[in-house]
C-alpha cells in the first residue's frame, strides 16, 4: 500500500498531533480536535466497506449510533465503568453489523443501498420509540465521565480526552492499515474489482463482505462510545442526515482506496464546518454547503470517486511468497 514517504508523512502527522495540546491550551480548539478524531475514525472505517470492499453501505452511522447508545445505557443505566462501556459499544456495533451483513452480503446494487439505509432509519425509530430506555427524542444526559485512578478527565481543559481520542484514532488507523495490507484486505479489493474472478479463485464473496462490514463496525462503535462518554450526552441526532452527509463527504473528498485520505478530510472538514457554525444564520446553511461540496466533488473531481468505485487499478505488485 503506502510507500515509505507516505508512511513517514503519516507518522509525522500523528507525532505533530501528539504535541498539539502542549501548544493549544484553548479548550474549544481541543474540543474540535477531539470531534475531528471521532469523525476520522468513522470516515476511515466506513471506507473499509464502501471503498475497499465496494459494499454500497449507507448505514455506517448506525454502527456509530449503536456505540453511542450502548455506552450511554451501559454506563448510566447499569453503572458500568465508562472505559468498559466505551469498548462495549464496539462489541454491540459489530454484532449489529453482522446482523445487517447477513442479508446484505447476498444483495446487489441498489438493494444494498436501500437495506442499509432503511436499517439506519429503523434504528432511529427504535431509539425514538423506546424512550424509557433511550430517553427518546431528548436523549440521555449527564453520562458518567472518564476517570483514571483518582484523575478526573474533566480537569485540565480536555487534556486527557484529547489523548484518548488520538489513541483511538491511531489504533484504528493501525488496524485499518494492517487489514488493507493483509491478504484479507487484498481479497476485499478483488471482490470489489472482479467479483467473478475472485469467486473463481476461491474467495467467498459473501463471507468477505460480511467480514468487511463487521470489522468496519468495531472501531466505529468504540468511537461512538467515546463520543457519548466524552460529550456526556447520547442524542438521536447521531442517526440523522447531518452526520451521515458529513461523514460521507469526508470519505468522498478524502479520496478513497487509502486509509488516511478520509482521516485528513475529517480533520479539515470538522474545522471548516465548525467555523461555519460560528457564523450567524449558518446553523442550517453549513449542511447545505457540505452537500453542495459533495456534489461538486462528484461532478468535478471524478478521479477521487473513481478510486471509491473501483475503476482505478492498483499498481501491480509482485505477490508475496
Amino acid at each position: 500500500m503506502a510507500n515509505k514517504r507516505q508512511l513517514f508523512a503519516i507518522a509525522a502527522l500523528f507525532a505533530a498531533l501528539a504535541f498539539v495540546p502542549l501548544f493549544v491550551t484553548d479548550s474549544y480548539i481541543r474540543h474540535l480536535f477531539i470531534i475531528a478524531f471521532v469523525y476520522a475514525v468513522i470516515a476511515s472505517n466506513w471506507n473499509l466497506s464502501l471503498g475497499h470492499c465496494g459494499v454500497f453501505n449507507f448505514g455506517h452511522l448506525t454502527f456509530f449510533g449503536i456505540g453511542v447508545y450502548t455506552a450511554a445505557i451501559a454506563s448510566k443505566t447499569f453503572g458500568i465503568n465508562p472505559w468498559i462501556a466505551m469498548l462495549l459499544g464496539g462489541g454491540t456495533a459489530a454484532l449489529s453489523a453482522l446482523l445487517l451483513a447477513a442479508p446484505v452480503a447476498r444483495l446487489k446494487g441498489i438493494y444494498v443501498v436501500l437495506v442499509t439505509f432503511a436499517f439506519s432509519q429503523l434504528a432511529l425509530q427504535l431509539v425514538l420509540s423506546q424512550s424509557q430506555i433511550t430517553g427518546g427524542a431528548e436523549g440521555m444526559v449527564r453520562l458518567p465521565f472518564l476517570q483514571l485512578g483518582s484523575y478526573s478527565f474533566l480537569k485540565d481543559f480536555k487534556f486527557g480526552y484529547y489523548y484518548v481520542g488520538l489513541l483511538l484514532l491511531a489504533l484504528s488507523c493501525l488496524f485499518l492499515a494492517f487489514l488493507s495490507n493483509s491478504s484479507f484486505g487484498k481479497s476485499l479489493k478483488a471482490v470489489r474489482d472482479a467479483e467473478d474472478y475472485a469467486a473463481a479463485r476461491g474467495i467467498s464473496v459473501a463471507r468477505q463482505r460480511i467480514l468487511a462490514l463487521t470489522l468496519s463496525a468495531i472501531f466505529t462503535g468504540i468511537a461512538g462510545g467515546f463520543y457519548a462518554i466524552y460529550l456526556r450526552v447520547a442524542s438521536p441526532e447521531v442517526f440523522g442526515f447531518g452526520t451521515l452527509s458529513l461523514a460521507l463527504s469526508m470519505v468522498l473528498i478524502g479520496g478513497v482506496n487509502t486509509v488516511f485520505g478520509p482521516v485528513l478530510a475529517a480533520l479539515v472538514l470538522t474545522f471548516a464546518t465548525e467555523a461555519m457554525a460560528g457564523l450567524q444564520g449558518f446553523e442550517d446553511a453549513r449542511f447545505i454547503v457540505i452537500a453542495v461540496a459533495m456534489i461538486l466533488v462528484l461532478r468535478l473531481a471524478p478521479e477521487g470517486l473513481v478510486d471509491l468505485l473501483g475503476k482505478l487499478r492498483l499498481p501491480v505488485r509482485p505477490a508475496r511468497t
Binding site: F58, I110, F241, S245, A291, M294, I295, L298
Partner: peptide, 10 residues
C-alpha cells in the same frame, strides 16, 4: 444515490 441524498439535505 449520493447526489440525490445531497439534494435531500439541501
Amino acid at each position: 444515490a449520493m447526489t440525490t441524498l445531497a439534494a435531500m439535505v439541501i
